[in-house]
Nucleic acid binder design. Structure first.
Length: 904
RNA sequence: GCCUGGGUGGCGAAAUGGUAGACGCAGCAGACUUAAAAUCUGCGGUCCGUAAGGGCGUGCGGGUUCGAAUCCCGCCUCGGGCACCA
């Protein structure tokens, strides 16, 4: 539909030739190669490295690569020594699934996929230093994953512990969370339970306080920092010991001051003491309940609005502060992974405990009460703040107000003195489970020896190479496919030399991405993960760009690793990224099954005339009747369905992918880049529509026309052939018949635009950068059309515009620069500087309001005093007429902008 | 449920306490053309009015202020994350 915009002959704005030409020149000259140069200020810009999937890049991926490239180019032009690398995060599940399905080794597929990504990124014209390309699946890379694991183990930060996995009973395999849908396996629809397996964990919790503290000094979005803080979830409180027969049950509470109101106790169904304390009569009920809880996700279990469930164990515990016998229950809203897996329940002051007590008719005892509050029976919800400690409880705290920050430390001190508990800081953060029972990952470099136990593989035997595999299906008992490869498993113990077995778990992919930014500094080092001096030069990342979805996963892990490396003396910084920006998504109008958000998969249609359907849907806003093919008893059957459209993330599997390749071919990569930047603010979602490509394309084509016109305009008689090529300073007079005022206006626009563009790129407001350049171009075009095409000011503006355009549309800019007689590549050319004296306005528009409503606009010389502005406003005819018969109460003047007259 | 980010014309948006709708898309009108496309010029929130001009208007309800899209309180609603997708 928009095809016609393009001149197929390539005569007007021949973007295909231009882009091909400059991509070749940049590659030949290695313009974007980064070399360490301590005489220059470095700037490390990094876009999170992608997982190269089989479907290649679509325009949605450009939402981060393009802005990242703009920053790299902008900083290079500002004279920084820029590092802008790229690589592949290629371990992971999709490749493994593919291997199981098609029997192909990911090892042979990954390089091909990476090549496709690289080719597509080059089509976009991004300025990566490809000499630093890395691939996380290369043994020369994952060797260092293993080395780091050994270091973590050495420091006691890697340990083995039982952790539950999703277990599909039918298939006897471990499932990822993503593979569990409504508590069932997404492939076989069979039941899924939690099954404990011994696995490797990293003690990220011992860095919890440093991970919190480190957030203070970094330039990341406040919301994202809050998410991290809440994820770490530091809470101060106490551990309290309750006796239960000969057993001791320890609970964690943030409210030890409410101990006097603890009327029952709740254990998680998985708590180890459950089996021991349960009385015979309750045993069967409890086991059934625990089995039911194992099927639920943590979110389902803890959801607040949800109806509470639970079972009485038949056992009692002794409340240490008052000797009360309180019943012990189990309930699924208490989780094993958090705290001690047991809580004391204070229904009077905690809402969840309150709901539980109401449901099971358990006693409620108020610790705090307003003087005139009636007794417990009148409560409709937990009484979480206010009131004073009740006298009748006989505690030493009678009369204290319910003020957590004051009373909790006092109570902690007291229970410590009593010996029934101690102050404790609890984190919500859990240790990092890095074991995966999968093939396509870094082998964990450990050996299990029957006589020596767990023995690390010595450093000089690294890497433990991931072996080839015949069959990618998981091994028995939930072990990884590696367990079926005898040549891999069988080894000798590094300690005693006897026969031993290798660990068959592999590492989670998040290990690879927790330090890749350091490898980019020194990617070819064979003797170390990186050289400290080199990494210290480049680190930290000055601008890190990636999606918000990484807020608490990757972005926490890589901070942990960086702090660990600092502790080992491997790096000087303790935060990986000084600044971080999160791009928005790119959505496409996607067909979904009516009334759901379930996308329609290939093969579910008989027909799919996309454009037609979209038009029809937009016209009627009603579901469109369609058909899909389903299989019933091995026979294909056509089933009628209804289809609607909704904005979902662009994706190949949903048949909505548009590739950068096709856009570059139709409109040019520069147009695509400009569109991505212009269409929505960097952090906002773009709703993709190809129609929108017209705007950026037309803009760049107009710039091409205008600058070409200026370049080929013959200088007027008597003029020197050489036109100024340095911005600012004085221009020759009387060059062309242009009024001085017009020349001044154009130059002012240029210098104002330089200032605005510089400022806006710095603050990631790329959309307003584009509009500012459009406005500058329009001013230049007008000037040329008015007879100024050969005027030095036109050429000066053309040069300025070209320089400002360089980060956004680098191919076109380099081409125009060459036409203008510029030397070299713009990547290596100085960014323009705004001259404040040329940018200053001589006149300003002052708005005159009466009672906050605009009544008049005055054009006045800039820099008038407030008194002069007020006088000018009161002197205007319009204002005088409006004020007729009114008394002026107050006049507010905003210098150079506004006068508001309050009158009645 | 918990944590987080949004909501402004037909559409993408701009304005971060001071002229709401810059810039662009789609549309309409005109110029050029044998014609169409491209290109160029112009119009464009809404209501009243021939016009000049005026009223209303930034998800909803309240508040602060001379002045609120912007700040505060309460709602509605849409997106992202929730530890094995990466």
């Amino acid at each position: 539909m928009s095809e016609a915009v393009i001149d197929e002959s390539g005569g007007r704005y021949p973007f295909r030739e231009i882009e091909k030409k400059w991509q070749a020149r940049w590659a030949d000259a290695k313009v974007h190669k980064a070399t360490q140069d301590t005489s220059k200020q470095k700037y490390y810009v990094l876009v999170m490295f992608p997982y190269p999937s089989g479907s290649g890049l679509h325009v949605g991926h450009c939402k981060n690569y393009v802005p990242g490239d703009v920053v790299a180019r902008f900083k290079a032009m500002q004279g920084y020594n820029v590092l802008n690398p790229m690589g592949w995060d290629a371990f992971g599940q999709p490749a493994e699934q593919d291997a199981i399905k098609r029997g192909v080794n990911p090892r042979t597929v990954v390089p091909t996929l990476a090549e496709v990504y690289k080719k597509q990124l080059n089509i976009l014209g991004v300025s990566y230093d490809w000499d630093r390309e890395i691939n996380s699946t290369d043994p020369s890379y994952y060797k260092w994953n293993q080395w780091m694991f050994l270091k973590l183990y050495e420091k006691g930060l890697a340990y083995r512990d039982a952790a539950p996995v999703n277990w599909c009973i039918n298939e006897s395999t471990v499932l990822a969370n993503e593979e569990v849908v409504d508590g069932k396996c997404w492939r076989c629809d069979g039941p899924v339970v939690k099954k404990p397996l011994p696995q490797w964990k990293l003690r990220i919790t011992s860095y919890a306080d440093r991970l919190l503290a480190g957030l203070e000094g970094i330039d990341w979005a406040e919301g994202l920092k809050t998410q991290q803080r809440d994820w770490i979830g530091r809470s101060e409180g106490a551990e309290v010991d309750f006796a239960c027969g000969t057993h001791k049950i320890t609970v964690f509470t943030t409210r030890p001051d409410t101990l006097w109101g603890a009327t029952f106790m709740v254990l998680s169904p998985e708590h180890p003491l459950v089996a021991e304390i349960t009385t015979g009569a309750q045993k069967a009920t409890l086991e059934a309940y625990a089995a039911e809880a194992a099927k639920k996700s943590d979110e389902d279990r803890t959801a607040e609005g949800k109806e509470k469930t639970g079972v009485f164990t038949g056992a009692y515990a002794i409340n240490p502060v008052n000797g009360a016998q309180i019943p012990i229950w189990i309930a699924d809203y208490v989780l094993t992974g958090y705290g001690t897996g047991a809580i004391m329940a204070v229904p009077a002051h905690d809402q969840r405990d309150f709901e539980f007590a109401r449901k099971f008719d358990l006693p409620i005892v108020l610790v705090y009460a307003e003087a005139d509050t009636p007794v417990e029976s009148g409560l409709t919800e937990a009484f979480a703040s206010g009131g004073a400690f009740r006298e009748s409880l006989g505690s030493p705290f009678s009369g204290e107000p319910q003020d957590k920050s004051v009373i909790v430390p006092k109570v902690v001190k007291w229970i410590e003195a009593q010996g029934c508990g101690r102050g404790k800081i609890q984190y919500r953060l859990r240790d990092w489970l890095l074991s995966r029972q999968r093939y396509w990952g870094t082998p964990i470099p450990m050996v299990h020896c029957p006589s020596c136990g767990i023995v690390p593989v010595p450093e000089d035997q690294l890497p433990v190479v991931l072996p080839d595999c015949e069959n990618y299906k998981p091994g028995p008992d939930g072990r990884s496919p590696l367990s079926t490869i005898e040549s891999f498993v069988k080894t000798t113990c590094p300690s005693c030399g006897g026969p031993a077995e290798r660990e068959t778990d592999t590492m989670a992919g998040s290990v690879d991405s927790s330090w890749y930014f350091l490898r980019f500094a020194d990617p070819h080092n064979e003797n170390a993960a990186w050289d400290k001096a080199i990494a210290d030069y480049w680190m930290p990342i000055d601008m890190y760009i990636g999606g918000r979805e990484h807020a608490v996963g990757h972005l926490l892990y890589c901070r942990f690793f960086t702090k660990f490396f600092q502790d080992l003396g491997l790096i000087s910084v303790d935060e990986p990224a000084a600044a971080l920006r999160n791009q928005g998504m790119l959505n496409a109008f996607t067909p979904v099954l009516s009334g759901t958000d379930k996308s329609i998969k290939p093969g579910e249609f008989v027909h799919y005339p996309r454009d037609e359907w979209i038009a029809q849907y937009n016209a009627n806003k009603a579901p469109i009747p369609a058909e899909r093919i389903i299989e019933v008893d091995g026979k294909q059957k056509i089933e009628p369905i209804e289809v609607e459209f909704s904005w979902l993330k662009m994706s190949k599997s949903k048949q909505t992918a548009v590739t950068p390749d096709e856009m570059a071919d139709k409109y040019g990569a520069d147009s695509l880049r400009t569109l991505i930047l212009f269409e929505a603010p960097f952090e906002d979602t773009i709703q993709w529509s190809e129609e929108r490509m017209n705007g950026p394309f037309r803009f760049l084509a107009r710039v091409w026309d205008t600058v070409s016109g200026i370049v080929s305009a013959p200088p007027p008689p008597g003029a020197s052939e050489t036109l100024p090529s340095v911005l600012g300073g004085d221009l020759p007079d009387n060059w062309a018949p242009m009024p001085d005022a017009d020349v001044k206006t154009l130059r002012r626009k240029l210098h104002q635009t330089i200032a605005k563009v510089t400022d806006d790129i710095e603050s990631f407001r790329f959309n307003t950068v584009v509009s500012a350049l459009m406005i500058l171009h329009d001013a230049l075009r007008k000037f040329c059309n008015a007879g100024g095409v050969a005027h030095p000011a036109a050429r000066e503006t053309a040069e300025g515009l070209t320089l400002l355009l360089a980060p956004l549309a680098p191919h076109l800019a380099d081409e125009l620069w060459e036409k203008l007689g510029g030397q070299g590549f713009l990547f290596q050319t100085q960014w323009p500087v705004s001259d404040p004296s040329l940018a200053a306005n001589e006149e300003v528009t002052v708005v005159v309001q009466i009672n906050g409503k605009v009544r008049e606009k005055l054009t006045l010389p800039a820099g008038l005093s407030n008194d002069a502005l007020e006088a000018a406003a009161l002197d205007s005819d319009k204002v005088r007429a409006d004020l007729e018969g009114k008394t002026i109460r107050k006049v507010i003047v905003v210098p150079g902008k506004l006068v508001n007259i309050v009158a009645n």
